[in-house]
Amino acid sequence: MNNKTRNLTMMLLLGLLISSAASAAQLKPLMDWMNSLVESGKVVGCMVQVTRDGETIFLEAVGDRTPGSEEDLETDQVIRIYSMSKAVTSTAIMQLVEQGKLDLDDPVSKYIPEFKETKVSVDGQLVAPRRPVTIRDLLTHTSGLAYDFSAPPELVPHYKDKMADVTSLEETAVVMSRMPLASHPGQAFVYGLNTDVLGRVVEVVSGKEFEVYLQENIFTPLGMDDTGFTPDADIELMHIVTPDEGSLVVDANHYEGGTKILKPAFQSGGGGLWSTIGDYTRFCRAMEQLGELDGNRILETRTVTFMTQNQLGPGTKKGPRQRFGLGFGIQPAVDSRMGPLGEGRWSWGGAACTYFFIDPEQDLTAVFATQQFPFNMDMNNEFHQVVLESMAIEESSR
């Protein structure tokens, strides 16, 4: 390397360092919040990436990779993203809709015949549903399929550990078709195994293994090089931790036994992906830019617009103020000292306390990750609020 090239390289590195330091200073409330999580013992370590107008304006990791290791957590750490997988799987389904290979109102039984025999629980009796479960029902979590933690008590035995020994999506879909629905299709929002069924639909319609399809049509086009259903064997993992007598310890139940839904052996479209905050930010940026990133388009503009509109009708039972599109929650504004912020942003989270949101009004994406059970909704809400407030403060100082 000659002196001219070396000097240019040093200038570029210096510029990146200055830019990083400036972004951290501009979003100081966010940095302070992350440090407070570690210092108070609420997390062992955490990472955040924020982009605006397609550029990273904040990328930081604080704390340790695992309890007692004193090994700093890095922003390229591979982690389980659990239910943040759902937005990716929903995107794959909508690609196939665009190609005319399936329709949102197709019955699921067209692709998984066993769903013709699915029953719904009504007053303690298993009866035929009023209509078939459709692809749209699965995307909006209105099929009636539940998780063991979201099913009514009388149905929990029909869900709990039923997929402990399955290893393929084909087998998984058959097992899920036998699970009683908690409500008639279209009747209520019931958070459940819907997106795992969609993973099998992708395989049937595309003729490819689910992960192969995702790699070819989403991960490779977007440059998501560290995302998949199995992390590389040589990667040092960030252990999942859980509170125990006032401190955070490695969750022995998760690693030694525990519920199989949190470590599925099949390619779970609802919760099986591993990724990094950098990779997932690339997915968020593609969606925020209406289906395209760096010249690679994964969805048409009109499709992204449709996916991120509320799909829960007035006759659907749901939570207060709840809105849900096709694979994304649609969030109300947060109340802040700066006024209401972030109305209509798209978001979801994962079981081990990973969170993301996309605010199209601000051309903003934000991804947070730690690895911790149980899911902490308060921390999710704090993340949304502190990012939005930090952006508002930064904007007002211009």
Rank of each mutant, 00 (worst) to 15 (best):
I135D: 02
V43C: 03
A92S: 01
V133Y: 09
L14P: 00
D225E: 15
R131K: 15
G327K: 04
I277L: 09
I240P: 02
V212R: 15
T5K: 07
N376Q: 02
V88Y: 04
P157S: 01
T303I: 01
K317L: 13
S177R: 10
G342N: 11
M10H: 00
L155A: 10
D244R: 13
D234G: 04
L155Q: 05
N380H: 10
S143I: 09
S36H: 15
S121A: 13
P29W: 13
L12K: 12
R130Q: 09
S336N: 02
I358W: 05
L214E: 06
S396V: 02
F229W: 09
F356V: 06
N217Y: 06
Y82M: 14
V133M: 11
N35E: 15
E170H: 06
T354W: 05
I81L: 04
E209T: 12
A61T: 11
T276K: 08
D76K: 14
I393P: 00
M31F: 09
S397V: 08
R323I: 04
V175S: 05
E211K: 07
D105R: 09
P374H: 08
E343V: 03
K318G: 07
S85I: 00
G327F: 02
A252R: 14
A366N: 02
W274E: 00
F266T: 01
L17W: 05
V201K: 05
L326E: 01
L364Y: 08
S247G: 04
K86A: 04
L214N: 08
H239L: 02
D103H: 07
Q289T: 02
I79V: 15
D363Y: 06
N296L: 07
G54W: 08
S275Y: 01
W33S: 12
M307P: 00
P180D: 03
G313Y: 01
P153C: 10
H158M: 07
T134K: 10
G278Y: 03
A146F: 06
S20D: 11
H141R: 01
T66Y: 13
S19W: 07
L37C: 14
A22L: 11
F324D: 11
A25N: 09
M224Y: 03
R398C: 00
A87K: 06
S183R: 10
R321S: 13
V197P: 00
L214V: 07
L30K: 12
L273H: 05
T51G: 05
I18Y: 09
T230H: 10
D234P: 02
E288F: 05
A173L: 04
G63M: 09
P320H: 09
L17F: 07
T370C: 15
D72E: 14
S40D: 15
T259Y: 13
S109L: 03
N2M: 03
G339T: 04
K318A: 10
M338W: 11
A61N: 12
T167V: 05
F324L: 11
S121T: 02
K116E: 15
P360D: 09
V62T: 10
V120K: 12
S206W: 08
